[in-house]
């Protein structure tokens, strides 16, 4: 059990950026990002025994993380569980990066105005997934994935422009 956990930890630490980026896309608030991050790690751990290595580890991770983010319920802040743990996650505030990675800062701010599926589409697109891979991950047709992605990109451009930025 301990050995499986260690292998799992090594693997997800190698690809922690996936979890990190999804939590920033789906949640605006730093504390909520942290909660979603934890939830994705938990769901990955629960689903790990079902990973048979038939696909790449990252492909499997994309699915579990996107699915978790889509149905995740924000915690009731009045009743947050007090589970003690030491979290070493660098959850970055949207404004924190200003000057460093301006484009990404605007991107993270703009995606907050997209719906849950649109966020998934943009995330998978930015992760260099092809239309076919996006379609397979979301369980829709390739044509539908293409149409939805194009619409979402247009919407995103419009939001970024509306927010006073263009690149």
């Amino acid at each position: 059990m301990k050995e499986t956990e260690n292998i799992f930890l090594t693997l997800i630490n190698q690809h922690a950026a996936i979890i990190h980026k999804i939590s920033k896309m789906y949640m605006n608030d730093a504390e909520e990002q942290r909660d979603l991050f934890q939830e994705m790690v938990l769901q990955l751990l629960k689903a790990y025994p079902s990973f048979k290595g038939n696909s790449k580890f990252t492909t499997w991770m994309y699915r579990v993380c996107v699915n978790t983010a889509l149905i995740y319920l924000k915690k009731d802040r009045r009743k947050v569980d007090k589970t003690p743990f030491d979290i070493h996650t660098d959850v970055i505030d949207v404004n924190e990066n200003e000057g460093k990675e301006e484009k990404l800062t605007y991107l993270y701010a703009a995606v907050q105005e997209l719906n849950e599926i649109e966020k998934a589409l943009i995330f998978l697109f930015l992760e260099n997934q092809s239309h076919r891979e996006i379609a397979e991950n979301l369980g829709i047709s390739e044509g539908n994935a293409r149409v939805k992605l194009n619409r979402t990109k247009e919407k995103l451009q419009f939001i970024i422009k509306k927010n006073g930025y263009e690149f």
């Binding site: 979890i19 769901q43 995740y72 589970t83 979290i87 990675e101």
Partner: peptide, 20 residues
Amino acid sequence: ETTEGSNISSDMLKIKQSHT
């Protein structure tokens, strides 16, 4: 984009309460 300092510790695996 770098996510330096983003280290998932074994303590995090102790959390059992899901929020789906």
